[in-house]
């Protein structure tokens, strides 16, 4: 149901955007060089589909791994820094500051140090989606659920694992939304990395298409990125829903 909704919503947005472009094209009588015609986009889509689909899968694979790493890191740091201690405050300050640096300025340094292989793409993807996830985790984990936690504290049965579980369960919707949202950031991060310096992925193909001033190829790439991302986010939301259902049954 979630997947289905995600896909048709994406189709509506994509079609509206492309229709707007065509309206501008025909309204201002622009050539296919500025905005490609519908048939040009269609033929390019058919011609490039297989190659671009494979590129998108390559990008998605890196983005998923990068996202998993960043979620794991964010949970680890978020849980450690959830208390109002000096370390907790230090983590928050670091997170806010590092997030302020534009990745396009940092990415070339990473590429110079680590080359243009998969590791660099992974690091950049993880870097882009790590901090927003961390901030959300910190927010969720540092907010007590007094109604429930009070009982365990009063009876002396509260342990840190239980505290984390309570807070995670009570905020599972928020966490799911943040994780699904961070998928967008992970994909965007990977594409930025590929655009700047990698040798593979859809970001690399978009860069070549831009060199060739081929907007039809870019529209094809955007369609495939959008549909794949919608599917992935749908899967994440579904997973979150199933986890919550499973936990609720166990409780």
């Amino acid at each position: 149901m979630l997947l289905h909704r995600r896909i048709y919503q994406f189709f509506i947005i994509y079609c509206l955007a492309v229709a707007c472009l065509f309206l501008i094209k025909f309204g201002l009588n622009l050539s296919d060089y500025v905005i490609p015609g519908p048939m040009d986009v269609w033929h390019t889509g058919i011609r490039e589909f297989t190659r671009y689909f494979s590129d998108v899968m390559d990008t998605l694979m890196v983005a998923v791994i990068g996202q998993v790493i960043s979620i794991f890191m964010a949970l680890l740091v978020g849980i450690t820094g959830r208390r109002a201690t000096w370390f907790g405050s230090f983590i928050k300050v670091a997170a806010y500051n590092v997030q302020a640096y534009p990745i396009v300025a940092i990415a070339p340094i990473i590429f110079i140090l680590l080359g243009d292989g998969i590791v660099t793409r992974l690091i950049i993807a993880a870097m882009i989606c790590y901090f927003p996830v961390l901030l959300s985790v910190l927010g969720i984990m540092s907010e007590p659920v007094n109604d429930i936690e009070h009982f365990y504290r009063a009876t002396g049965r509260m342990r840190w694992q239980l505290e984390v579980k309570i807070r995670a369960f009570e905020n599972l919707n928020k966490l799911t939304t943040v994780i699904a949202g961070s998928a967008t950031l992970a994909v965007a991060g990977t594409i930025v990395a590929e655009f700047i310096a990698a040798n593979a992925g859809i970001g690399y193909s978009i860069r070549i298409a831009l060199y060739q001033s081929d907007l039809a190829k870019i529209l094809t790439a955007l369609f495939l990125i959008g549909i794949t991302l919608s599917l992935y986010q749908g899967v994440l939301e579904l997973t979150g829903y199933l986890i919550k259902k499973g936990w609720a049954t166990r409780v």
Partner: peptide
């Protein structure tokens, strides 16, 4: 084409690509 500039500098491949697309 968008009317934002009246003159410009372009590389030959850009010109040829643009002509190929009807500019």
């Amino acid at each position: 084409e968008m009317g934002r500039a009246q003159f410009g500098v372009a590389s030959a491949d850009q010109v040829i690509r643009a002509l190929s697309k009807g500019a």
